[in-house]
Design a protein around this nucleic acid. Structure first.
Lengths: 350, 350
DNA sequence: TTCCTGGACTGAAGCGCTTCACTAACGCGC
DNA sequence: GCGCGTTAGTGAAGCGCTTCAGTCCAGGAA
């Protein structure tokens, strides 16, 4: 009697409070009058059960509210068939990739686990969490970590980096030809008569070194090296605000600004409009990403569109590919961007 | 010989390609010269190992690159200590909650699993994925599913809904006193002399029925029932754009608009500014959420601030609380909002 | 000296699943 | 009637971990 109570208490401590024991395959098997093995077969969509039995088992499972236990499956299978995705919840561009990643992974028979970095949670921690969940593939969206760390990940999992080049590594990279996007932007502006074209860069944010270099190269190509002006920034609205304020504090504005991304561009426009600097009358602005907001009629931002669907699809396919076939070599896949000309660029002001 | 090859092949098929076998606790134990049990103790931060041994084990683990296997732990422990979070990656307001949720969960000793709903992946699927990972607690950020379905979840896990009321259920709810926020907005506008105050609602999006009701009530309180105007919308920029176009197509504009949320407000402003309808000179606009963008100087949106940190913190605490103590009753926790008066509201135009 | 206590540590069972190796039954060709 | 292949199904081992129930050895207390 006393023993019973002790046991009951111990159980109460272990089980999540207030929940009934979760049904297992064994329960389903008993109810359907078959072996556990057969239930397992059925839930894995493998042959070996008659249609009749299959239906009976599925019905039994349904009645019990049975739900497969991924942890147990993972353990037993020895592999998880899971892709871990690192993202920054505040980068809307990354959010655009998530939908496609889910769809593509599901089609390939893989699970997806999301792990977000945030001010309170650094990237490192977010990645470790994914590894701890036995993710076989890691898809890192615009990771900020140093290249060396990312390289070391490669022998713990198949790693795919999106939106950032990472030369000399065993990781796949999928990214936009940032140089081309920037070149198109500069060409477009020069075509409109601009010569004083400044660039607010993205600091260490993914893609920005490439964009910065491309800006310099493009300016050189147009013999505008004298007009080069790089303002240090980041891929945030705040950075755009700061850059705009820097420019306004000077006696002379450039006639066009290439922002590091759309968020930065929006910050810039924000300040300029407030200061009655007309966009594009007084100054033209080009963004990067073609985010949701860029398309809004008021913002109507000329920007460089990245093929989010293509990026996401290839990221998943590379990860899955290398998981299924170890002989595959990691590759660096580059997708062409497309300049979306909208209302924030116009003829230079003189 | 033939057998060997067959086996090797089978192994290659099972293991994720190209990866070495992941070290286990047994490997660590062997290397450190102790039992598996002791290693387990140490990794669970439990007493029973001398400091010396502890160090030795941790070092061995480090050398091997050992990483605890959550799936195995989960299985063995019988519980996961994991909270599953449902979010919509495109709702920036929800992104703001994530950081705090991670921090708070970690403090309580819980893991967090994120599952996103997206156009290609409905909420139902996202929730099932969490359940399948044995999440004990579900934190649903602004779920769109019908109340009945959410109610049924309650006997599979401890459920906490954020940002939406859900009466008569076994789930916790944490939300903002939307009615108060709306009332403050209306009071503010009326104080500025507005009488024709329209409301673009959020359709079925979380919180919007409450906001709509509060709008009607506040208008009544000010004897403005005659001027009530609800324009059906959603919590997206597009909905704001559509609503603005609807209004512009009429011969007479209201003097103020209460948007369903900031995104909607931005859509509205976008169209108005383009149409040379001055904000706030010709029309005042109030948003809801105080999102990142609302604070930008150009947008500078008057809006209702929700206490994101408080919402997130309480959501986690309620979930954890009910997991640790089954006697706790679910509650409906309501946090007061705060009107942030900025530049998009001004005196009525006559 | 004996007995006890507590700290340090171990062995083995078992979590829910998959899978390997196996059995039983049933055609089918000859 | 025999061997054979196929289909439908089963039993048991084992994935990496936690935990229960010990064991063993100090160092006091009696």
């Amino acid at each position: 009697m006393l023993d019973d109570r002790a046991t009951a208490h111990a159980d109460a401590e272990r089980a999540p409070a207030g929940l009934h024991r979760r049904p297992t395959m064994a329960d389903v098997a008993t109810r359907a009058g078959v072996s556990r093995t057969l239930v397992s077969l059925i839930f894995s969509n493998k042959p070996g059960a008659s249609d009749e039995t299959r239906d009976r088992v599925l019905q039994a499972a349904d009645e019990l509210g049975y739900r497969l236990d991924r942890a147990a499956r993972m353990l037993a299978r020895g592999r998880s068939r899971t892709l871990g995705v690192l993202m920054d919840v505040h980068q809307t561009f990354q959010a655009d990739l998530i939908g496609t990643i889910y769809a593509e992974a599901e089609a390939a028979g893989y699970e997806v686990l999301l792990s977000a970095s945030a001010p309170t949670r650094d990237e490192h921690k977010a990645i470790e969490a994914l590894l701890s969940h036995r993710c076989e593939g890691l898809i890192l969206l615009g990771p900020l970590s140093e290249a060396d760390y990312l390289r070391t990940l490669a022998d713990r999992a198949v790693v795919t980096v999106v939106g950032r080049a990472l030369p000399h590594t065993a990781v796949d990279t999928v990214r936009t030809a940032d140089a081309k996007g920037i070149r198109q932007s500069v060409d477009h502006l020069v075509g409109l008569g601009h010569r004083e074209i400044a660039h607010v860069d993205g600091g260490a944010d993914p893609g920005s070194p490439e964009r910065r270099r491309a800006y310099l190269a493009a300016m050189r190509r147009h013999d505008l090296s004298d007009h080069v002006r790089v303002i240090p920034g980041q891929h945030t609205e705040e950075a755009g605000v700061a850059a705009a304020n820097t420019l306004l504090a000077e006696d002379h504005l450039p006639t066009a600004v290439l922002a590091g991304n759309d968020r930065c561009a929006i910050g810039l426009m924000d300040v300029f409009t407030r200061a009655h600097v007309d966009v594009p009358g007084d100054i033209s602005i080009v963004g990067y990403d073609d985010s949701h907001l860029a398309q809004l009629s008021r913002i109507d931002l000329t920007t460089v569109r990245q093929d989010t669907e293509g990026l996401a699809r290839h990221a998943v396919q590379f990860a899955v590919g290398r998981l299924e076939d170890e002989d595959l070599d990691p590759q660096d896949f580059v997708i062409d961007p497309h300049l979306m000309v909208r209302g924030t660029t116009g003829p230079a002001r003189w």
